[in-house]
Each structure stands twice: as C-alpha cells, then as structure tokens.
Design a binder for these strands. Structure first.
Lengths: 195, 195
DNA sequence: TTTTCAAATGAACGCACGTTCAGTTAGATG
DNA sequence: CATCTAACTGAACGTGCGTTCATTTGAAAA
C-alpha cells in the first residue's frame, strides 16, 4: 500500500517530527525506538528514512527548530528602553512562549547529552544568545541604577531557571490559570533584582 | 578468577552504584548498558546481579538513596524561629548540599520518567516532603508579615528551581567560588519574598 | 594442608535495535 | 487508458541488549 489519501510527504514529514517530539519528551531519546515513532505515525520504520537522515539528525532537528523559534520570537519583542518594563516584558514573553511548548522545552534541555559534540555546540550557542537578551536588560538596569544585582550573568541563569521551572509543574487544569502564574512570577522577578 | 584482593562484596557493591550513578548522569538510564557499568567496575556483566535485582531496581535505589540523604540532612537543620533567618539557612543548606552531588541531582530529576509507576510515586512523595519544609518557612513568614508572597506553594517551587538550577552551570574551577554564589542567591531569594 | 564457599566468569538465551533496500502500490500525469 | 514515480512495505542485516546459570577461582577457615 502506498500513497493513501492525505498521506503525502508534506503530511507525513511533520507527523514524524510531532510523534518523535512527544515520545522523546515522555520516554527519552535513547528509550524511544524508530519502530515506536513509526507506529505513532502509522507507517513502517523504514518509511521514516524518507524524512530523516538518521535518529541523531531527528533529535538535532527537533532541538534546533525549537531554539530557532525561541530566538525568532524573542527577536520580535521590544526589550529596549526602561529596564524595569523590559524585564517585565521578557518575563511575560518567556512564560507565555514556553508554557505551551512543554515537550520542546523538556527535550531541548534533557537531551543535550545525547547530542553529537558538534550539534551540542550549535544548540548551546543558540541558548547562550537567548540568555544574553535577558542579561542585556539586567546590565542596562544596573547601569541605570534601577536594579541591584551582584552578578548579571549568574542572575540571568538564575532567573531563567526560575521561569523555565514553571513548565515542570504547571497544570492547565490545575488551581491556577496562566495569568495568575505570570503575575506571581513577574512579582518574584521584579523584587529579586530591584534596587 | 574470583575474590581478588580488595574485591569483596563490601567493595564491589558500592562501586557498582558509583559507576552506575556517574554513567547514568552522563548518558541517561536507557543509554547505559549493564556491560558498560560492569566495565567501569572491572567485572563481567553477570557479576552485577550479585548486588542488584535488576536494572530498574538499581535506578530506583540510586534515587531513593539520594532523597533519603536529602531528607535526613534537611531534618538536621533548624528551620524554626525567625522566618527570615530560617529562609537563609534553608538556602545555604540547599546550595551546599546539592552542589557537591550534581550527578545525584541530575539523575533524580531526569530519570523520573524511567521509573515504574510505584517507584515514581515513592520518589515524588519524598520530593514533596522536602518542598514542604521550604513552604513551611514561607507560610510562617507570611503569617508574621515579614514575607510578601502571593502563593506559598508556587513560590516554593520557584525558589527550588532557582536554587537547584545552580547545579546545571556551576563550575568549581570557574569564575566564582561557592561562597560567592551562595551570597548572590541568598540575596536573590531574600529580596524575592521580602515584604 | 585440605576444605569451603563467596565472588566472579563467560557463554548462552531470546529479543529489539537502527538502518538498508528490492519490491509493491496507487494517485497523478499525459 | 497506459505510464510514471513518490511513498511505503516487509524482510533482512549485524549488533547489542538484560538476564540467567553452570562452572571456576582463590582467600579464609579448619
């Protein structure tokens, strides 16, 4: 059987990536087999190789795509001007971008160790570029005297860990809605760096 | 060959656990084979089964031991009295306990998804018990009017994510020593929850 | 010196892995 | 209607997996 209705390259390709992302987030890269991914897509394992070069490339593509999206979306945010307002905008952006992308966040962070050295270096550089956007805000705030921060680099890493941690416990059907969580964290961040 | 000098059960057993912890932290539970662990210890794979029931039990033991140590050590800390001082003591304890145990932290967090449902429930209960110690401090501080925190549970999870995040980037040979890092984070935490 | 047995070996088990590829199928093309 | 070919199948490849177990070893006990 081949070329069923609605089963073209443009459809199967994305389905492979979606299934792989979900399964890897749930069980881990090494624990997920190509046959499992194929099963989710509804094809045999061999068919996956019409869309990916090999398993390692699939993982790297997933992580690179995510980081690309993060950087592209972040680039659209205006984080210049008043550092206090910029920090609040960054906080809002980070939470609202990452919370609906829990699988991507999980995979991009957990599976770094399964990346080839070259691929690892590339992803790390993208992550660093994102961190630098926050650090620039902190530096501007310190220079302006509106932030009291002992070390902008360490504080950057701390704040990102604080914010990204939300993806590990947030439950859309839970006690708090996103707006409330965002408000709580905005306040935590604002106070933590306040002069 | 059997029973070489210094190769008794009391020695090989711990070596198995140490090797497993290091390898799993580095490559992930699913990616590490029993033969790799055995190789690190200096025995054949079959010999491991004198010390563990199976691979899953090994993972669970590593995680349970870590959580046991955390809870035991935390129980020795006096976190009563002035909430501001208690929070500072908790911060110091958390950093100084976890920073020399990066492999344990990594494994206990990353490999939760590879735990059997029963084992997962047990580990989660221990983690929750630890979190509750911090939340008790926050609640006391809010009651005393010395902390301004919108939600003690969410803030607890946030602060732990902030503090534990240190293990992901701290480099003992890097720019900052532990005392400096501790001072930076103590200040971040103190200000974040201050009334 | 002989006996004992904890602690290992090393081969074997069935199974699943990532990947390749010759062959098959069915929608699109002329 | 005949042809083409993108998309997929299904079997096969060699490899390594977790685990078991009869056998061997050598330090300690008698």
């Amino acid at each position: 059987m081949a070329r069923k209705q609605g089963s073209h390259s443009d459809i199967t390709g994305p389905k492979v990536r979606e299934a792989a992302l979900r399964l890897i987030a749930q069980h881990g890269y090494a624990a997920v087999s190509m046959r499992q991914i194929a099963g989710e897509v509804g094809v045999q394992a061999g068919a996956l190789y019409n869309y990916i070069a090999d398993k390692q490339s699939l993982l790297f593509d997933l992580m690179q795509s995510h980081m690309d999206e993060v950087l592209t979306a972040a680039a659209r945010e205006d984080l210049t001007g008043d550092p206090v307002a910029a920090l609040e905008r960054f906080t809002a952006f980070h939470i609202r971008f990452h919370l609906p992308r829990r699988d991507q966040v999980f995979v991009s962070y957990m599976e770094l160790r399964n990346l080839d050295p070259d691929n690892f270096t590339r992803i790390e550089a993208m992550r660093r570029a994102y961190e630098d956007r926050l650090e620039a805000i902190l530096k501007a705030g310190v220079a302006a005297g509106v932030f009291a921060v002992a070390d902008t680099r360490v504080t950057t890493l701390g704040l990102i860990a604080l914010l990204t941690g939300i993806t590990n416990w947030y439950d859309p059907d839970g006690r708090l809605d996103i707006d409330t969580v965002q408000a709580i964290y905005t306040e935590l961040v604002r106070k933590a760096v306040a002069a």
